[in-house]
């Protein structure tokens, strides 16, 4: 291999998207078998089917080729894990909005929001659907298992620093909130110990297409997310902020994530335009 040769692609089992697919499937299956998290199995074809159909359609229209079923599967599965509603329309709309947002809300050809994060945050603002429910129980064994598998996978995917940085930042801000409000530290830390919160820490904030390009940047972004989440939690007496308070991390990511991604893309573009054409061509030369 010459020094100029492009890096060999990772085998499929090491690619982040496959790892995420595996983990999300484990979460879904174990949640359903152990806790019956799905109110009806019909939500699976509705959410996943909608996501796949939308992905195929929009990808063909916008990019001229069929999209990734795997990506749609992740969006659809995330939807059924995170939402717990009595009717089917929240699942259908969430999956549809998630996939559509990838093609509707873009900057320089890249989508800015994690699709499921955007869909859930937007739906929470306009509807009363409950999310991030507690249907995975409070057993430390369940939590430990999912944490272990999750950490293994984010390590293999090379984004362990993102998850760990968020955990450290959340813990620090929990201490800050305890100092400011007098609420016990254990209470402030409690959300982090729950099974459903892991979904956020492992999937949403590590989603490769919507994270920034540098390692330092990614760490900075998740600290910013934890900071915004802390501010939302400190506003807990404001009943008019009920949708935000129902899911502080979801909204923190929905606020910080696209701003960070936009800045990252913009700076990348500026750097690219400032680079002499000869140098820009160098890598492929």
């Amino acid at each position: 291999m010459t020094p100029d040769a492009p890096p060999a692609p990772l085998p499929w089992w090491k690619q982040p998207k496959w790892l995420i697919t595996v983990l999300i499937t484990i979460l879904l299956v174990s949640g359903q078998v152990g806790f019956g998290i799905l109110r009806t199995l019909w939500v699976l074809p509705v959410a996943i089917g909608t996501a796949v159909a939308a992905e195929m359609l929009f990808s063909w229209l916008v990019r001229g080729r069929l999209g990734s079923i795997q990506s749609a599967y992740i969006s659809g599965t995330s939807t059924v894990i995170l939402i717990k509603a009595d009717q089917l329309w929240p699942y259908l709309l969430c999956a549809l909005i998630a996939v559509a947002s990838k093609y509707a809300l873009t900057y320089r050809g890249r989508h800015l929001w994690n699709p499921t994060n955007f869909a859930i945050a937007a739906l929470l603002l306009v509807t009363g659907i409950p999310i991030l429910s507690i249907q995975m129980g409070n057993s430390p064994w369940t939590v430990g298992l999912v944490w272990a598998v999750g950490l293994l996978i984010v390590t293999r995917a090379g984004v362990l620093h993102v998850t760990l940085s968020y955990l450290v930042a959340f813990t620090a801000f929990a201490a800050v909130r305890t100092g400011l409000t007098g609420v016990p530290f254990a209470t402030e830390l409690a959300p982090l110990t729950g099974a459903m919160y892991q979904f956020f820490a492992f999937f949403m904030i590590t989603d490769p297409p919507t994270t920034v390009s540098s390692r330092r940047g990614r760490i900075g972004v998740v600290i910013a997310i934890a900071a915004v989440e802390c501010v939302i939690r400190l506003l807990s007496d404001h009943t008019e902020l009920r949708p935000l308070l129902a899911a502080p991390p979801i909204f923190a990511l929905a606020i910080v994530g696209p701003i960070a991604k936009w800045i990252d893309l913009h700076r990348g573009a500026v750097r690219a335009s400032a680079t002499p054409p000869a140098m820009r061509a160098a890598p492929s030369a």
Partner: peptide, 12 residues
């Protein structure tokens, strides 16, 4: 409800 939601997902 917010206070309740903090604890309800907690474990241990």
């Amino acid at each position: 409800w917010y206070r309740m939601s903090q604890l309800s997902g907690g474990t241990g």
